[in-house]
């Protein structure tokens, strides 16, 4: 069977993109290999780890569980599209990353949490980030960073 292709157009980080893609290609591979946005990582490819998190039409999704063709006509934002500066800086300040593999997903998910809930408890943060695995296991610092940003924004 020859590989099936479709033409898709979407915006990625605000810029219009049109490409011919194999229909079985997932969104995160499209972003990484076709467009060069390698900030979204590929861990498990089965929806378990959250390394591939990107924002699709305003909501975080698993880039490995969305086909590129399903993003046709949509707006995609990756970590290269930017994330709240205070959050990014606090991750750096509080050592909330070691190897950085989980960090883009952690940042995009945390930013989404803080938009929905500016006043999260540490429990809320853990719950919201429960689908993002940090293989370096730096969870304590990650929760610290998100909590500290929420506190700083309130004061």
């Amino acid at each position: 069977m020859s590989t099936k292709h479709r033409r898709i157009s979407l915006t990625v980080n605000g810029e219009a993109v049109a490409r011919e893609v194999p229909v079985r290609l997932n969104l995160v591979d499209f972003l990484r290999h076709d467009l060069g946005f390698t900030g979204s990582h590929v861990g498990c490819e089965q929806g378990a780890c959250g390394a591939c998190t990107v924002v699709l039409d305003g909501q975080t999704v698993r880039g490995c569980l969305v086909l590129a063709v399903q993003a046709d006509g949509c707006a995609v934002v990756t970590i290269e599209g930017g994330v709240d500066d205070d959050l990014r800086e606090m991750f750096y300040t509080l050592n909330a990353l070691q190897c950085g593999f989980c960090t883009p997903g952690m940042l995009l998910s945390s930013a989404e949490l803080l938009r929905a809930n500016p006043n999260p408890s540490r429990e809320d943060i853990r719950e919201y980030l429960s689908g993002n695995f940090c293989r370096c296991t730096g969870y304590q610092a990650i929760v610290d960073a998100v909590f500290t940003v929420a506190e700083a924004r309130r004061s």
């Binding site: 929806g47 959250g50 998190t53 699709l56 909501q59 975080t60 999704v61 698993r62 569980l65 969305v66 998910s109 989404e112 949490l113 919201y128 429960s130 689908g131 993002n132």
Partner: peptide
């Protein structure tokens, strides 16, 4: 059910 990013879709 799973996690926010999965619940969105």
């Amino acid at each position: 059910i799973a996690h926010p990013a999965v619940r969105h879709r």
